[in-house]
């Protein structure tokens, strides 16, 4: 859908609850977001849920730029919540979204973001059942909160504290693509790097369907693999040993990171998981992940060992600590 007048902008009137709000609803949200729950236009969604355990998660998205190679804030806001639910072994079912729009945002931009939310939700099979919009002063910014819920089929037990000695640690693909994409946009650097922004519930389901038993899963977002693994090691009171030569990073991201003094171990992703399985299931899981488009660069990167924290066996055979990220990963001076 292309907005009929691409120069039209959001004003405070769009958040007033009056006719402009109504117009926003009718012309942008309703045509995209319509389903059996939303179409009832009640004050709240009414859902009937099967008995059992549910996972629920909320996340707020404030990325700049709003559009980047491989995705945009709309796709990100759906995938982020879908992936958080998936990491608990849940099947994402329903989600809500809240928009905060700054005055001056073009309706064309909003419409594109909404459209890509719908596409991502369709791909993930999650239903959007409630939403809200507020308008604030500003310079055309756009922020989205999403909250999702999904049932955890019985028998699945995926927790950060489940790691045991000997478990295999896998990642589902190359690290750092999203982080490098966003920085490239901000720094006006031309390259071929593209965000990995994607819903991963299909990949996770495939693992369970193949009778594999992931013990722990996390999406490797802000802070990167190094930080996520430190959290897991701490929750499970174990150590994790990584093998540098097995950690998948594309050549272009490796080069980009070297120039800016960033370490792919601390770079964020939006379509990659780290998971732990019993060692004997590692190879089978790897083969399965690699058949899947979103897991084609998967690798077994290490295993759970005695001790605490995360250490890395370097290509030269040296051993070093991988501490959690402190502060932001800022590009450095020289």
């Amino acid at each position: 859908m292309v907005w009929k007048d691409k120069y039209m902008k959001i004003t405070m009137a769009h958040g007033s609850g009056g006719t402009a709000s109504h117009q926003l609803m009718e012309e942008i949200f309703a045509p995209c977001f319509h389903n059996s729950v939303l179409d009832l236009r009640e004050d709240a969604a009414v859902l009937s849920l099967d008995p059992g355990e549910y996972a629920m998660s909320t996340d707020t998205f404030v990325v700049t730029p709003l559009f980047y190679k491989g995705g945009d804030i709309g796709k990100l806001s759906v995938c982020g919540t879908v992936n958080d639910l998936s990491c608990m072994g849940a099947r994402p079912q329903y989600m809500t979204c809240g928009f905060i729009l700054e005055e001056g945002l073009s309706l064309e931009t909003l419409s594109q973001v909404v459209k890509s939310m719908v596409e991502a939700a369709k791909e993930a099979g999650i239903l959007l059942v409630a939403g809200d919009t507020k308008v604030i002063d500003g310079q055309g910014g756009l922020y989205i909160n999403t909250t999702g819920i999904g049932r955890i089929p019985s028998g699945r037990n995926v927790r950060g504290a489940n790691l045991e000695l000997g478990d295999a640690i896998l990642v589902t693909g190359n690290l750092g693509d999203h982080h490098a994409t966003i920085l490239s946009h901000r720094m006006n650097i031309e390259n071929q790097i593209q965000s990995d922004n994607a819903p991963l519930n299909g990949l996770v389901e495939a693992l369970f369907e193949a009778d594999l038993h992931p013990k722990t899963m996390r999406d490797i977002t802000r802070g990167g693999l190094g930080t996520v693994l430190n959290e897991l090691a701490q929750s499970s009171r174990v150590g994790i040993r990584l093998e540098e030569e097995r950690i998948p990073v594309s050549r272009s991201v490796q080069g980009f990171a070297e120039i800016l003094g960033l370490d792919p171990l601390y770079m964020g992703n939006e379509g990659k998981l780290v998971l732990a399985l019993p060692w004997e299931e590692g190879e089978k899981a790897l083969a399965l992940l690699r058949q899947h488009e979103k897991g084609k660069d998967a690798a077994i990167v290490g295993r759970v060992v005695e001790g605490n924290g995360v250490e890395l066996r370097t290509r030269l055979g040296g051993l070093r600590r991988v501490p959690p990220l402190v502060g932001e990963g800022l590009p450095r001076i020289c």
């Binding site: 003094g261 370097t314 030269l316 055979g317 040296g318 051993l319 070093r320």
Partner: peptide, 16 residues
Amino acid sequence: CGTHTAALFRNGIHSL
């Protein structure tokens, strides 16, 4: 130089 300090650490040279 600081970049060497970081590279020595990253490669685990101290342990070698």
